[in-house]
Every structure is written in structure tokens, then in C-alpha cells.
Amino acid sequence: MPRFPLVPALVKNLFKRPLTNPFPAAHLPPSVGDALATPGAIKPPVPMPPGGRARVVYDPASCVGCQMCIKVCPAHAIEFVPGQKKVRLFRGGCIACGQCVEVCAKKSLSMDGQFLLADTNRFSDALVAK
């Protein structure tokens, strides 16, 4: 007799809850940014574990412009603003490796766990940290 070892599990699955998560929204919102700002518009995604690498946040006040972050950034996503002795971080090109956060002596850079960053303009305020 042919053997189909998967069949019992398949039939059992019929009576179980599906393992997939529903899509975060019923329909594509007209603006992802607005939808993110509105509580409840998007079903909460699976939470990130502690220490998950995601969006880099920049605090210009404490930055002394040492440029170490630029030196270690593999994606060339950070640029130096000479006049102000500050940096500008383009999240569109950031690969979230977290090296700049580790190398920063003044703790001006940190990660906040937010990963829903979609935008149609890669130079929008949401995607440039300055």
C-alpha cells in the first residue's frame, strides 16, 4: 500500500487554528504613515524581542561630531554635516546592523524597536534622522 505519512497531520490541522497571522490591515491604507500614527488602524504585528535591531534614533544634542559612526557604517547611510558638526542618517539605506549604536561614545544613537518604516519618499522626515 502506498504510504502518505502527512495525511493524519493534515486532517488534524482542519480542526486547529491556523498558524499564520492575519494581514496587519483589512485594506491598504491611503497613507501608511497616517495609519501608523492612528491607534488601532493597523493590527499590532508580532512584537520584537528585547534587543531586536530596527530603527536607529539620533539625538543631535549630545552628538560631538566625531564621525566614528560614519567610519563603521557598511551601507554609507550616514553623512556628515560639516557646518553643524552633526550627522544625518538615511534610514532608507540603513541595514540596521547596529554598529553605529555600539561605536557611539556619547550614546547619541540608539535603536527603538520600530520596524514599520515604509514610505514612498526615501528622503521624507520619517526616513531621515537629523
Partner: peptide, 11 residues
């Protein structure tokens, strides 16, 4: 739908 449920998906 049934095949999706058997595979553990919502479908």
C-alpha cells in the same frame, strides 16, 4: 479554504 486550513494557513 480547506487546503489552506490543512496546511495551517488562514487562506
Amino acid at each position: 479554504v480547506l487546503v489552506a486550513r490543512m496546511q495551517g494557513r488562514i487562506g
